[in-house]
């Protein structure tokens, strides 16, 4: 094993360890927050018509009368066994619900991430190459608009125009109700393709368009600003100037030399974009009636269903932490400038 790869392995281990530490912290924070909820979980669980004795029984059954610390330890133990508990409101196992709703949200968030990056990177490069010209200002304004629009407002406008007025796109939902796919992934775009169901794929895609566009607006603005900033910096560096002096064509300089250097740090954009997509999920899903994790979480908040609140928040956060970990590792692997000390 070379010295380099040993350092790499060490770095990897350390990074995984700190990620685990962070996840433990996240679990703790969600646990603490859930105990701040101003309603009595036992009476919630016992149901709307429970009598006081029943509520007390539930309190004992759920270990809710135990000291907070022992509840916390119990909670950690359950989680470690993969048991996320059951919903107080619906009495369904939460892990099962998460398996249902998570793919729907991932489908949205990944599509939005892809859209934001595919549009954002070229737009950022273009703005940088036309620095201080009209198109640069235009793209900048577009980017700022993207990060200044409330998603529920842009969603309303899109729905009014493309669904209510023009009737081009379905108003809400994931599919027509009759569309059912065998579930390799739970992401219908992929499932329909796997099943070779072209009609289903079209249906699913049409449903995806508006939520994805709305969701992508903010991360798109973000991506443009970041890529533009990095590109400007790279374009100002000595070796690009040298390349320009050496009469290498502008296009090659821009898209080959400069972008390559700018893209490495832009990996982070991917993580960020994903983060913003997934965190706006609960707004987007509410407006589009999208049966995903965000809606699951909002519903749980409305019903003060705290096992669900903590579990859903935890799931989203863990995914985010893992995505960040993966991107960091990837970047450390690819970018020689990252010190692995």
């Amino acid at each position: 094993m070379s010295r380099g790869s040993r350092r790499w392995a060490g770095y990897l281990l350390r990074r995984v360890f700190t990620s685990l530490l962070v996840i433990l912290g996240v679990v703790t924070i969600t646990f603490v927050v859930s105990r701040l909820v101003p309603s009595d979980p036992a009476s919630l669980y016992a149901g709307a018509r429970a009598r006081p004795e029943q509520v007390e029984q539930v309190r004992a059954d759920l270990n809710l009368d135990a000291p907070v610390l022992s509840q916390y330890v119990g909670y950690l133990g359950d989680l470690a066994r993969g048991d996320m508990g059951i919903s107080f409101a619906t009495k369904r196992p939460i892990a099962e619900d998460l398996r249902r709703f998570l793919p729907a949200t991932l489908e949205l968030a990944l599509s939005a991430t892809a859209l934001a990056v595919l549009l954002g990177v070229p737009a950022g490069v273009m703005a940088a190459s036309r620095h201080r010209r009209l198109s640069d200002t235009g793209i900048r304004l577009l980017a700022v608009t993207g990060v200044s629009m409330p998603v529920f407002w842009s969603a309303l406008i899109l729905q009014l125009v493309f669904a209510a007025e023009l009737g081009w796109l379905p108003l809400a939902g994931r599919t027509e109700a009759t569309t059912v796919f065998a579930q390799p992934t739970g992401m219908f775009v992929i499932d329909s393709l796997v099943a070779g169901d072209w009609g289903g794929f079209v249906d699913v895609s049409r449903h995806l368009v508006m939520p994805v566009v709305v969701m992508a607006a903010f991360p798109l603005g973000l991506t443009i600003r970041l890529v533009r900033g990095t590109m400007l910096e790279v374009l100002g560096s000595d070796y690009i100037e040298a390349a320009t002096v050496a009469r290498i064509p502008r296009r090659t300089v821009l898209w080959r030399l400069a972008l390559k250097n700018a893209l490495l740090p832009a990996l982070t954009v991917l993580g960020l974009t994903f983060a913003y997509s997934i965190s706006s999920a609960f707004l987007v899903e509410a407006v589009f009636g999208w049966p995903g994790l965000g809606k699951y979480l909002t519903d749980a908040i409305v019903r003060v269903d705290f096992p669900v609140i903590t579990a859903a928040a935890l799931a989203i956060t863990v995914i985010y932490v893992l995505v960040n970990l993966a991107l960091d590792l990837l970047q450390a692997r690819l970018d020689p400038r990252v010190e692995l000390a």
């Binding site: 209510a164 108003l171 109700a177 509410a286």
Partner: peptide
């Protein structure tokens, strides 16, 4: 028959208007 949960009244209104 599909009984669909539509908690957002704006969405429900749009759905009956459009015939969905």
């Amino acid at each position: 028959v599909e009984m669909r949960l539509v908690e957002d009244p704006v969405l429900a209104e749009q759905l009956v208007r459009s015939g969905d």
